[in-house]
Design a protein around this nucleic acid. Structure first.
Lengths: 149, 149
DNA sequence: CTTGCACATGAGAACCTTTCTAAGTAGAAG
DNA sequence: CTTCTACTTAGAAAGGTTCTCATGTGCAAG
C-alpha cells in the first residue's frame, strides 16, 4: 500500500462503480468522495450528516443503497466492530482494527506477516475466507483524558 | 476448559450473581439456565423466544437488564460478530470465533498459544486489553447445502 | 420529437434492536 | 403493619436499517 494523491482513490472507486453498470449520479459521487480517503470508519449517519449541507435533499435510502452497491463491488467493507451502527471501511486490503472501549474510535492496524496462517482449531469443514483481528483497549486520547480530568 | 456436568455452570453463575448483591428472581434464574450451557451465541430475541413459553409475562427489559447484569459481573460477554443484533456468549475464557457468511452461525475457536503476543503496529499509546479474532467463511452445513440444492 | 423503459432518488413508513419510563409487585427491614 | 428497595412489566421512545412507492432523469426505439 502506498500514498495516493488526493482524489485518486475516489476516482478509482467511481471508475469501478461505472464499470459495474451503475450510473455515476451526483449523490453517488459525493458519497464516494466523502468516504474514499477517510480512515475514521464512519457510520451511515455520520456520512449523511457530512453530506447534508452540500446535498440537502439526499435521503438515507440513497446513502444505504450506495454503500451497499460499493460493498457489492468490493470497494468498501461493512464492519461490525462494536454493538450499534455498522461502520464502513474504504480499505479493502487485509488489515486489522484497534477499537477504543471508551470513545469507540477505530484505527487501522497493519497485518502481521504470519497472521494469515490459520492453524487454529476451526470447526470441522469450515472454509476460511478471511481472518479479522480486533484489538480492544484504550486509545491515547482517552488515557490522557483519564489522567487529566 | 473441561467438561462440566449439566447445570453446573448455571449454578456457578447464579451463585456469583447472588454474591454481587443481585436477587435471584425466577426470571433471572430462567435466563441464566437458558444461556449457561449454550454455545450458539444467541441474541436477546432468541433467548426471549425460548423463554416465552415458560414465562409468558416476561418482558424484553428484563432480558436486557439481566444480560447487562451478567456482563457487568463478567459472567457473559456481549459480542458484535456481524451487523445486526448483539450476541451473548457464556464463555468468558479467551477464545475466538468462526462466523459463517451465509447462515450467520457462530462457533467457538480455541485460542492459539502465540496469538496473545501483540507485535502488530498498533496506534501510538493504544493500551490493549484483549485481542479478538474472527474467522469468516462458510460452515460445513452451508457448503453441503450449496452442493446439494 | 415523442414515447417508453430502466434505473435512481426522495420522503416517509415500517421494522428491528435496544433503552427508557411509569406503575405496580414482592420481599426484607424496622 | 408500614416502609423501603429492588425487580418486573408493558409500552413508549430512540436508534439503525430496510422497504415502498411516487417521482424524476437519461437513453433508446420508434
Amino acid at each position: 500500500m502506498r500514498m495516493r494523491p488526493e482524489g485518486d482513490r475516489a476516482d478509482l472507486m467511481l471508475a469501478r462503480l461505472g464499470e459495474s453498470g451503475l450510473k455515476l449520479t451526483p449523490q453517488r459521487i459525493a458519497i464516494v468522495r466523502e468516504l474514499a480517503d477517510d480512515s475514521s470508519h464512519p457510520t451511515a449517519q455520520e456520512l449523511f450528516d457530512r453530506l447534508a449541507p452540500a446535498m440537502p435533499t439526499m435521503s438515507f435510502a440513497t446513502v444505504y443503497n450506495t454503500l451497499d452497491a460499493l460493498a457489492r463491488c468490493n470497494l468498501i467493507e461493512a464492519r461490525a466492530l462494536a454493538p450499534g451502527a455498522t461502520r464502513f471501511d474504504p480499505n479493502v486490503e487485509p488489515h486489522h482494527h484497534a477499537v477504543c472501549d471508551r470513545c469507540g474510535c477505530v484505527a487501522d492496524v497493519a497485518p502481521r506477516p504470519r497472521s494469515t496462517s490459520v492453524d487454529a482449531s476451526l470447526p470441522d469443514g469450515f472454509a476460511v475466507r478471511a481472518v479479522e483481528q480486533i484489538f480492544r483497549g484504550t486509545c491515547q486520547r482517552c488515557r490522557d483524558a483519564d489522567g487529566g480530568d
